[in-house]
Design a protein around this nucleic acid. Structure first.
Lengths: 207, 207
DNA sequence: TAGATTGTTAATCGATTAACAATC
DNA sequence: TAGATTGTTAATCGATTAACAATC
């Protein structure tokens, strides 16, 4: 009977988390939906509606306890889980991901990187071993990583996704320029789409 | 009097462009909103509505000419323009961008990379010189690059955006974990938000 | 011409905002 | 207690889908 959370609300959670984390860092202990709304440039109504998808975190006449809310959203986002991750594709994007997540977010531990290039296999990035993509399926069956970051060329993406799915991956972070249709959660970062959107806005300033 | 194009529609254009590009590559010359909708998993209504924000590209009883539509959307997206670009921050993300866009999309030419690290300044990535961030303002005034890709740490982002704005940048492609408030178009790639969204979906499969 | 498929208007659905009673 | 601010319902707004007349 739990009301299903609209996707659009779920996608706003990381942003709330970011702002609340900043407030925690600043030592702010309570905040009203009103003042948070001014910081975040959204309506106070939206904040209250969004949060109430998950529970009554506030208190009438007082507002929200910053740290409690921060923790609660972190929990909802699943950031208390420890996710073991692999990166497939050791090109520029794969390397960026390998280094990036390592120091940027806790809870996501990269265990291995896969590539097809003989020059890279056997090496390492940021202390993480680069293995042969041919071993990917076997590796997944043995180690059951939770998340795969896919940083491979367009043409290789579809087959890779199938391999990952079949071997028990739980979620895919997709940097390939393809829309994947999978049975597990897929989150895509479409960098080229993003750049085109910027180009569009620059070319059509009035619209 | 041109009806303003909803942001949600503008953001779908790169995806249309992607699918149409694929069809062009496959030698398909015409397509109906119906069959495109099946490929893209959206409704035919939405496709027709979206396209009609920009003009009547189709023909009753026939459908759309794939190549014409592809070109038209490319034009709308501003991809016929040549954008000169700089990358600020030569860390992992900056490096990925420097290499990535170069071969992935035409029309975006990276002219220079900026960093504060003395070990990097004077070097180059992918043939593109790495310059001292201290020279950024002067460089912008002299060369007037169109787009800046910001790949700097959170704390440096706000000030950097001001510098870029003041020195005439036309658009910002933002990889920093901050929401920027600028007078020029800003397009943000929130990688960490994206990973949290994936985490959320994995942690809340039912919702 | 007849069939197909668009462009466009109308109907529906969902998300955002406003309002206010509940309550700390 | 009185003032503040939430949780929640109702009103509005915008986006999506359905329908169909126009027309190639």
């Amino acid at each position: 009977m739990t009301k299903t959370v609209p996707d659009v609300v779920a996608r706003r959670l990381p942003r709330y988390y970011r702002y609340l984390g900043e407030l925690v860092g600043q030592g702010v202990s309570r905040i009203s939906s009103r003042s948070l709304s001014e910081k975040m440039k959204v309506t106070a109504s939206q904040i209250r509606q969004d949060l109430n998808c998950f529970g009554g975190f506030g208190q009438q006449g007082y507002g929200y306890n910053v740290y409690e809310l921060y923790s609660a959203i972190g929990e909802i986002l699943g950031l208390n889980n420890r996710y073991r991750m692999i990166v497939v594709g050791a090109g520029n994007v794969g390397r960026a991901v390998a280094n990036y997540t390592g120091f940027r977010l806790r809870g996501f531990v990269i265990e291995a990187i896969f590539d097809i290039s003989p020059e890279l296999i056997g090496g390492s990035i940021n202390g993480i071993p680069i293995l042969d993509s041919a071993e990917l399926g076997a590796y997944c069956r043995e180690h059951s990583p939770h998340i795969a970051a896919m940083a491979v060329p367009r043409g290789a993406a579809e087959e890779l996704a199938r391999t990952l799915e079949e071997n028990g991956i739980k979620g895919i972070w997709n940097f390939s320029h393809v829309d994947l249709d999978c049975s597990v959660p897929v989150e895509t970062v479409h960098m080229s789409d993003s750049l085109m959107t910027l180009s569009y806005r620059m070319a059509n300033p009035n619209k």
